[in-house]
Design a protein around this nucleic acid. Structure first.
Lengths: 258, 258
DNA sequence: GCTGACAACTGGTACGGACCAGACCGTACC
DNA sequence: GGTACGGTCTGGTCCGTACCAGTTGTCAGC
């Protein structure tokens, strides 16, 4: 290894700033270490005979990559390896078990109905597509925790009302219809309980709620539109926002949530 | 709504490219929509009387935030909102920017204090360990969104109060103290705003709040204990659940259920 | 011994000019 | 009709210059 004889930056198809980035990345990793400073911008422009704009662009891309960081007035330094973050959400059941609670369900109603426009759109239903409307209360140790109002396309789930809806719908979908939920988009916000919701959750009016609106997909098609209202005082969501490893991935896919 | 009368870029403490970024973000989100093109770089330099370098820098930051994307020879376009998870260790600022809002911060207080027992325990502080207590209101487009009450070990962050706490603390930790947040444990629940919180958030008492309690770690040591109260009516959290990408794949944890 | 002014670094912002390269469209040519 | 060629949009690269703004060490002055 001849070290690195200040490789030359040349004109050509590859932009100078990209070449400089490579040189600097190599320098940072091989010869310098974390914490140490790289040459100043003005030094670099002299060494490699490029303009400062080019030097800065090269450095900026390395900063974006997390390899360097700059401090105004002091210099540019090799970063300590940065770790990307990834979200892990514990499942509702796990969450409940961890608290030593037993989950159960109270079925309020199941009926075929015409969904509102926004639901129909989210479920990708044509104008005349009807859907199952399923309302349930979820409990833990007999205490109401959440109210779920869900919509499910009839076309994909014929005869849904003839099955037991007292447990996990996802399990039912998988076992009976061979449809597995593979992904979901979820939005979460806060809300105060209105009279109806409060009554069903056996809580005072205006109890703070955590509201989830979720659209779940199976084989790329929307299979579920559900709004869940959780008692904010009884339900807590726990999550680890964690490192996952460097680089473009190491995809520890984790399960759903709730 | 006075539309947006081509706000002027002025000299001042705030860099021109940052001002232009705000203007463009606003333009992209409010007046244009996804897919549509923003004015060309040369047009922008004429309209706002800045150099092309400044225009490009403004655009680049918005591209980094995922709000725009460029196509060589065609133009620069408003990106379609990403479907990726937005629940990550992102800064409040980035989060807001991505939603087309302008983030700002109102610093309420910074002081050295003895943390309560539970905080001291979470931060792994010895009996006499003091910590910085930082209270801030975070705003988007000037509207209060969240109240943050944070605790930070003094030992790891000497002289914290001498720095600008108006922006991202995570950036500050990285740049000044070379401490990068690598992971966090977070718990979320719902709460009704009490009088003090309501006043600071400029909201009615009993407004539903989303409350996050987060303990963040750097190099395995706890660096932050923060409780953030978000206005549930103004702040929504969006997340993607399910398999992410390729990889050994889809360890879809069972026990989920919804 | 301490303090403050200053000089000499560092990166940060901004200008204006020049030319290259991809995309698109109309027009002249086969 | 189809094709090839420019002109003219777009963004991409690169230069040189200037000045501002933090950081730190030096040195005179108290």
């Amino acid at each position: 290894m001849p070290k690195s004889p200040a490789r030359v930056i040349t004109d050509g198809p590859r932009p100078k700033h990209a070449q400089l980035s490579d040189v600097l990345a190599d320098l940072a990793v091989r010869e310098l270490g974390p914490e140490s400073a790289i040459p100043s911008e003005r030094e670099l422009m002299a060494t490699y005979d490029v303009s400062r704009a080019t030097v800065r662009k090269a450095i900026e891309s390395l900063i974006a990559d997390g390899l360097l960081n700059r401090i105004h007035g002091k210099g540019t330094f090799v970063a300590t390896p940065r770790l990307e973050s990834r979200l892990h959400l514990a499942s509702f059941s796990q969450d409940m078990r961890r608290r030593g609670l037993t989950p159960s369900t109270r079925l309020l109603s199941v009926e075929l109905d015409e969904p509102p426009a926004d639901v129909a759109k989210a479920l990708d239903l044509s104008a005349d597509g009807s859907a199952w409307r399923v309302d349930r209360v979820r409990l833990a140790d007999g205490e109401p925790i959440a109210l779920e109002n869900g919509w499910y396309p009839e076309r994909l789930l014929p005869g849904l009302d003839r099955h037991d809806l007292g447990g996990s719908l996802y399990d039912l979908f998988t076992e009976v219809y061979d449809l597995t939920i593979e992904s979901a988009e979820q939005t979460l916000w806060g809300e105060a309980a209105d009279a109806t919701t409060a009554r069903r959750l056996d809580a005072p009016v205006n109890t703070p709620l955590l509201v989830f609106r979720r659209v779940s997909y199976s084989a790329g098609r929307p299979l579920e539109y559900v709004v869940s209202r959780y008692r904010g005082d009884r339900y807590q969501l726990h999550m680890s926002l964690g490192r996952d490893g460097i680089g473009p991935s190491s995809t520890t896919s984790e399960g759903q949530q709730q």
